[in-house]
Amino acid sequence: MKKFEGKVLFLDRSDINTDEIIPAKYLTEISKEALKPHLLEDLKIEGFAPDKDVKDKGVIVTKTNFGCGSSREHAPWSLEVNNINVVIAESFARIFRQNMYNCGMLAIELPEETINKIFNKYSRKETYIKVDIENSVINIAAEGEQEEIKFSLKGFDRDLILAGGWVDYVDKKY
């Protein structure tokens, strides 16, 4: 199982697409590691500088429909090689979400009001999130403050996380 914690990168926009996560011109790479410097390099959000804001992060918190567009698994891979194994959002595009769980990574959906609350309270602070898979709890800590948010991880999604991904799961079963 992967490590589900780290400093938080807040991306305050909906519909961030896979071309913004990793541009198509890097899809000619045959190793995942080669994607590392290019994560989010075409994403335009005011105040966001991909070359310095991505470094040392472990968790992304964002709005709705994250990962829309292309089916490229290079999107989760480019997160993975940057040690970001958790994305928390109000909603995800279907293929991106499945790709995350297939790689044994977490795509956590929270209600709009919870996401907004997290943004309001933490997005201007240095924030650290640790996800407790066992108890389905997100631990948030920032500047001395701390809180716990419950989330849902059940059934097939949970099995994939525990198995470390879909290939290992399926090979045992079918």
Partner: peptide, 17 residues
């Protein structure tokens, strides 16, 4: 459309979830 892991499993086992 699916990602590469689903594709791998499709190639190997002929199934997808």
């Amino acid at each position: 459309g699916i990602g590469t892991t689903d594709l791998e499993v499709g190639i190997l086992k002929g199934v997808c979830a």
